[in-house]
Design a protein around this nucleic acid. Structure first.
Length: 271
DNA sequence: ACGAAGCCCTGCAAGC
DNA sequence: TGCTTGCAGGGCTTCG
């Protein structure tokens, strides 16, 4: 699934095509996602003009004057822009049709995604109101991570993936960031120095920025809204490279389960 | 509050 | 070939 770079790639891919356009209709085929698609999406969205497409964490926000569509791609979701009618496939759960414009189609095999209609301030929604800072904004830095980590014994990788601490970093980019920072993923978060957190914050920014520039990471099913894959998978140092030589020291990359998730690291370069 | 584990769901690959 | 098992980019709930 989409982590921050994939969601951002999706956002930029769809924004230019739907901002300023009026929603002509909404088709819901499978209402049961992580939360049910609300009836209000069908009754209230049509006729509204999308003023902006924003991203907060891994959520996409389609803003209108009357309310906001909150979309989340879960583990396997993707959005696609259709310029001509294509018969829906098995997991095409939602279409948003635009007047004299494309159709935005939401596909999500595992149905861990989300499509909600929220009146008022979307950032007050329970899913959005307790999130940590954006990793590419100024509030996120080494000092911030250091302060939040004090007293925490959880593995630094799980700490980094905690959306209350910082948003947008999932299983791929957590492994990659820790490799670049030279930090072992199982290291207890509260025992890492301020200086090392400065390196980690910098690594997170670098990895996410580079991944966005490459259109995200395509492991199996992610694609941009134009149907094209991302290319950052060719730049991965550790994720999915179990047994392959470390790009820095040539020793084999290891994989280990940590906090229910597969974790990749170099035991020599990461301490 | 924190941390660990289980669960939601489908598809695919590996192993028998 | 066909079955079972485990695993997959996330996030929420529950339990200790």
């Amino acid at each position: 699934m989409p982590e921050l770079p994939e969601v951002e790639t999706t956002r930029t891919g769809i924004a230019a095509h739907i901002v300023g356009r009026e929603v002509a209709g909404v088709v819901v085929r499978t209402p049961r996602l992580r939360l049910p698609i609300s009836e209000e999406l069908i009754t209230e969205l049509p006729g509204k003009i999308v003023n902006a497409v924003e991203r907060r964490a891994k959520y996409l926000l389609l803003r209108t004057v009357a309310g906001t569509v909150i979309l989340h791609l879960g583990m396997s979701g993707s959005l696609r822009l259709l310029t001509e009618p294509i018969p829906p496939g098995t997991h095409d759960h939602l279409d948003i049709l635009f007047r004299d414009g494309p159709t935005l189609r939401f596909n999500d095999p595992r149905r861990f995604g989300l499509a909600l209609w929220v009146r008022g301030n979307p950032f007050e929604h329970p899913s959005l109101c307790n999130l940590g800072p954006e990793p590419l904004e100024a509030e996120f830095d080494g000092d911030y991570l250091y302060h939040r980590s004090q007293g925490r014994i959880v593995a630094v990788k799980a700490f980094l993936m905690d959306q209350h601490i910082v948003v947008g970093v999932g299983n791929i980019y957590a492994s990659e960031s820790l490799f670049l920072a030279g930090i072992h993923p199982a290291h207890p978060a509260g025992t890492i120095s301020r200086a090392r957190y400065v390196r980690l914050a910098k690594a997170v920014r670098e990895v996410l920025t580079a991944a966005i520039a490459q259109g995200g990471t395509t492991l199996r099913d992610f694609h941009g809204s134009d149907g094209h894959p991302g290319y950052f998978q060719f730049a991965l140092h550790v994720y999915g490279r179990d047994g392959a030589p470390c790009s820095r020291c040539s020793r084999p990359i290891r994989s280990e389960r940590l906090g229910q998730r597969n974790t990749f690291y170099c035991a020599h370069c990461q301490r």
